Computed example of a mutant assay.
Amino acid sequence: MSTLTTTSVTTATSPDGTRFGAVRAVRLGLRRVGYETKIYFRAGDTVFFTFLFPVVLLGIFSVAFDGLGNVGTNPDGSGGISQAAYYLPGMIAAGILLSGVQNLGVDIAMERGDGTLKRLAGTPLPVISYFIGKMGQVLVTSLAQVILLMLLARVAFGVALPTEPEKWFTFVWVYFLSIFTAAVLGIAISRLPRSGKSASAVIIPPLLVLQFISGVYLNFALLPEWLQNIASIFPLKWIAQGMRAALLPDSFAAAEAGGTWNLPGVAIALGIWLVVGLVVCRVTFRWIRKDS
């Protein structure tokens, strides 16, 4: 049985052969990015519930809550930001969670259940190429989703995006750290469902709960302290906080736990989850289940 710890990406033992094998594995993985992306967009339910879902919610929340006025207005009624601007960071964070954790968690579990991974085990495809294809697909579709969310916010609702370079620097590093962490965790939790048919039922409900307690749909500061503490264990709370730091005015930092954006805490929390996910993937991933 092929495992992440035993599968080699090379067929030669010489340094040149090893280098050639690694290049070949990367080339195969990059080819699979296109294949995986095509398969992704051909699945209508996947496209809606992972790609379009945050976009639809941003539109609904922006319209439904527009009558409440701006968020964070001054006592004299001036200032503040629109509802669309306020919900944009949360929708981007939710999209990262759905694109990485939910998408890969369900997809790989279904491929294990329907025999796709077993068939791949009988081919020369290295495991690393398979992972490059999956993670590349997540990156491509997630970037497209972020662009679509920002276009909707800017064009349809007039949201003013940040102009400060440091804000965009924060956005870039938070985004890439978040999407790779989410993708790795998606691969890791794909082992939880006992079958492909149960994958959605096992993975989606806990992720939906996380979205409600992590400051995506609800103001995090309004949640009970014990619920905030639970949410702080998981990565989505930190992804949403990092996105707020990048896209909201600095005055909104006062509403965060501790009264600051705490970007070092965001980096540390996501880094820990990335390492945990990598360890779990390395220890548990197999083309097929032991009990299959």
Rank of each mutant, 00 (worst) to 15 (best):
L149W: 07
G258H: 04
N229Q: 15
S214N: 09
R154S: 13
Y217K: 01
I233E: 15
S232F: 06
L223Y: 11
L139K: 00
R244M: 02
A188V: 08
E256G: 06
V140A: 10
W273S: 02
A240P: 14
G196F: 04
Q145F: 01
A269E: 13
A201R: 00
G215R: 07
F157P: 00
W168E: 05
F180L: 06
L227W: 03
A269P: 11
F171C: 00
L210A: 09
I272G: 15
P206C: 03
V159S: 13
A253D: 02
I213S: 02
P235Q: 13
A240G: 05
I189S: 01
V266S: 10
V140D: 06
A182S: 12
T170Y: 03
A267G: 09
T141L: 08
G265H: 11
W226H: 07
T181H: 06
A183G: 09
V138R: 10
P264N: 04
G271Q: 09
S142G: 03
W238P: 13
S195I: 05
N262F: 14
V155Y: 13
G158W: 01
L208R: 01
G158A: 11
A221P: 09
S198E: 14
E164W: 04
W173E: 04
L270Q: 04
L177A: 03
V140Q: 12
L192S: 05
L152Y: 08
W273K: 04
S200E: 15
P162R: 02
N219R: 14
A267R: 11
L143T: 00
V146F: 13
I239L: 12
K167E: 03
P224E: 12
G259T: 08
P162K: 07
S198N: 10
F234R: 02
S142M: 09
G186T: 08
T170A: 14
R244I: 09
L274P: 01
P165M: 05
M150T: 00
L139H: 05
A240D: 14
F171I: 00
Q228W: 11
S190N: 07
P165K: 03
A245E: 00
A253Q: 07
F220Y: 15
L208N: 12
A246T: 00
T141H: 11
W273Q: 05
V275G: 13
P162M: 12
L185G: 03
L161M: 14
P249D: 07
F220H: 09
I272T: 09
F220T: 11
V216C: 08
F180M: 09
M243T: 01
W273A: 02
I204T: 10
I179M: 10
L274V: 01
F176Q: 01
W168P: 04
V155A: 15
W168S: 10
A269F: 12
Q211V: 07
P193R: 03
G258S: 11
A245K: 05
G186Q: 08
A182V: 07
S198C: 04
A255M: 11
W261S: 03
Y217T: 09
L236N: 06
A269W: 14
